[in-house]
Amino acid sequence: YKPCFVCQDKSSGYHYGVSACEGCKGFFRRSIQKNMIYTCHRDKNCVINKVTRNRCQYCRLQKCFEVGMSKESVRND
Rank of each mutant, 00 (worst) to 15 (best):
Y14I: 12
K25G: 10
R55P: 15
H15S: 11
R55E: 15
I32K: 04
N45Q: 13
N54W: 08
G13H: 05
S70I: 15
D9L: 02
D9G: 03
C56A: 00
G68K: 04
F28K: 00
S31R: 03
Q33Y: 05
Y16G: 12
N35C: 12
T39P: 05
A20L: 08
F27T: 00
R53L: 14
H41C: 07
C40W: 03
S70Y: 05
H15M: 11
Q62E: 11
G26F: 06
A20D: 00
R29G: 09
E66I: 08
C21W: 01
H41V: 10
K71N: 10
I37R: 11
I32A: 07
F65P: 03
R55T: 15
F27H: 03
K44L: 09
K2H: 13
E22S: 06
Q33A: 14
M69W: 06
R60P: 02
V47D: 15
Q8R: 06
S31E: 03
F27R: 00
I37E: 12
Q62D: 08
R75W: 13
Y38A: 03
N35I: 02
R55S: 15
F65M: 12
C64R: 02
K2C: 07
A20M: 06
H15E: 07
D77E: 14
T39D: 13
F5R: 04
K63I: 05
H15W: 06
C40P: 02
K50D: 15
S19G: 06
K25S: 14
H15D: 12
G23P: 13
S19H: 10
G13S: 09
H41W: 11
V67E: 05
V18M: 06
R53W: 10
N54L: 15
N45V: 12
K44H: 05
S11Q: 05
A20E: 02
F65C: 06
E66C: 07
C59K: 00
S11T: 06
F27A: 02
R75K: 10
R30K: 14
R42E: 13
F27P: 01
G23Y: 04
F5C: 06
V6G: 02
Y1S: 09
S31I: 04
S70M: 08
P3F: 12
Q33M: 14
S73Q: 10
S11V: 06
V18N: 03
P3T: 09
V51L: 15
C64I: 02
C21N: 03
S12M: 08
E72G: 07
R53M: 15
N54R: 12
K63C: 03
I32L: 09
Q33G: 09
V51A: 08
L61T: 01
R55Y: 13
M36H: 10
I48R: 00
M69D: 03
C24K: 00
Q33D: 11
S70A: 09
M36C: 14
C46V: 02
E72V: 07
G68Y: 00
V51S: 11
F65R: 06
K2Q: 12
V67M: 09
Y58D: 07
V74R: 06
K34T: 09
R53H: 11
L61Q: 05
K10M: 13
C21M: 02
P3K: 12
V51H: 12
D77V: 09
Y1G: 08
C56F: 00
S12A: 13
S73N: 07
A20Y: 03
G68V: 01
K25I: 13
R53F: 13
A20W: 02
R75I: 10
E22P: 05
S12I: 08
P3H: 11
K10N: 14
V74W: 07
Y38D: 00
I37W: 08
R53A: 15
G17W: 03
S70G: 07
G13F: 04
R42W: 14
M69S: 02
K44F: 05
K71S: 11
Q62A: 12
M36V: 13
C40Q: 03
A20C: 13
K2W: 05
V74F: 09
E22L: 06
Q62C: 05
I37H: 07
G68S: 03
R29E: 15
K50N: 12
G17R: 05
K63E: 03
T39G: 07
S11P: 08
Q57E: 15
M69F: 04
C21A: 01
R75D: 09
L61K: 00
Y14Q: 06
S19T: 11
G17C: 06
P3G: 11
V6N: 01
F28D: 03
K44C: 08
V6F: 04
Q8P: 01
S70E: 12
F5Q: 09
K25W: 11
R55D: 15
L61H: 03
R29Q: 13
V18I: 11
H15R: 06
F65E: 10
G26M: 04
Y38C: 00
Y38T: 07
E22F: 05
S73F: 10
E66K: 10
D9V: 02
K2T: 12
G17E: 08
R29I: 13
G26R: 04
K25T: 12
E66L: 10
M69P: 00
D9P: 00
M36D: 07
C24H: 00
S19Q: 12
N76K: 11
N45F: 06
I37A: 12
G68E: 02
D43K: 11
R53Y: 14
H41F: 11
Y58R: 05
C46H: 04
K25A: 15
V67Q: 10
Q33R: 10
C64D: 00
S31A: 08
T52R: 02
Y14D: 15
N54M: 15
R75S: 09
C4V: 01
